[in-house]
Design a protein around this nucleic acid. Structure first.
Length: 182
DNA sequence: CAAATGATAGGC
DNA sequence: CCTATCATTTGT
């Protein structure tokens, strides 16, 4: 199966974020298998990161984020779009990596340039919130080719986060045509 | 630039 | 209970 291991996720969030670039996201429902290559991510740190949902502490919504690593944190944003994250570090830390864009590999139809769009194209929604990423239903697989150059930028849409708004925690594969924005 | 659209968190 | 806000997308 070649899934990324629990240990892969149990590392500092920014390290995991960069390591996820080029890896494959696999969602299986019955006969339907959809695979996309991760080309853009953002790291969300723990309670001290004002851009992170975990800065509100443990709530019904952030429960999964504060749970053990290697699980999916999927939430509804703006009443209409789902966003998928991967929980990192260790239980109680509230860290995760937002997947922002994919390059379609197999069985994926539609636009995957943006966190809401890729969830729609991959068939991901909140029913998968808390899903174990070592499962067959939803998991990640190692990159098949090395990622040569990574670009670092401030995260998108977090202008409310004060000093954290400018942190260079958005990473993408330089030159990849499936990035959500320049 | 503004609307769509509903869950969430915080205030009262 | 009430309401401002929101890790977005789409159309004008």
């Amino acid at each position: 199966m070649n899934k990324l291991s629990r240990d892969f996720y149990s590392r500092p969030t920014a390290v995991v974020a960069e390591a996820l670039l080029g890896c494959l996201l696999v969602h299986r429902r019955g006969d339907d298998e959809r695979v996309g290559k991760i080309v853009e991510v953002e790291a969300y740190l723990g309670a001290h990161d004002l851009a992170s949902h975990s800065s509100k502490g443990v709530t019904p919504r952030t429960r999964v984020m504060y749970g053990p690593p290697g699980h999916a944190y999927i939430y509804l944003i703006y009443g209409m779009h789902n966003c998928m994250n991967v929980v990192t570090e260790s239980e109680g830390n509230g860290c995760a990596v937002l997947i922002r864009a994919l390059q379609p590999i197999h069985g994926v139809h539609g636009n995957t340039r943006g966190p809401g769009l890729l969830c729609k194209a991959m068939g991901l929604d909140r029913k998968l919130d808390g899903q174990d990423l070592l499962s067959d239903t939803l998991h990640l697989a190692p990159r098949e080719e090395p990622v040569l150059h990574v670009t670092h930028r401030p995260r998108i849409g977090v202008g409310y986060a004060g000093d954290w708004a400018g942190a260079l925690l958005r990473f993408y594969i330089a030159g990849n045509p499936f990035i959500s924005r320049k």
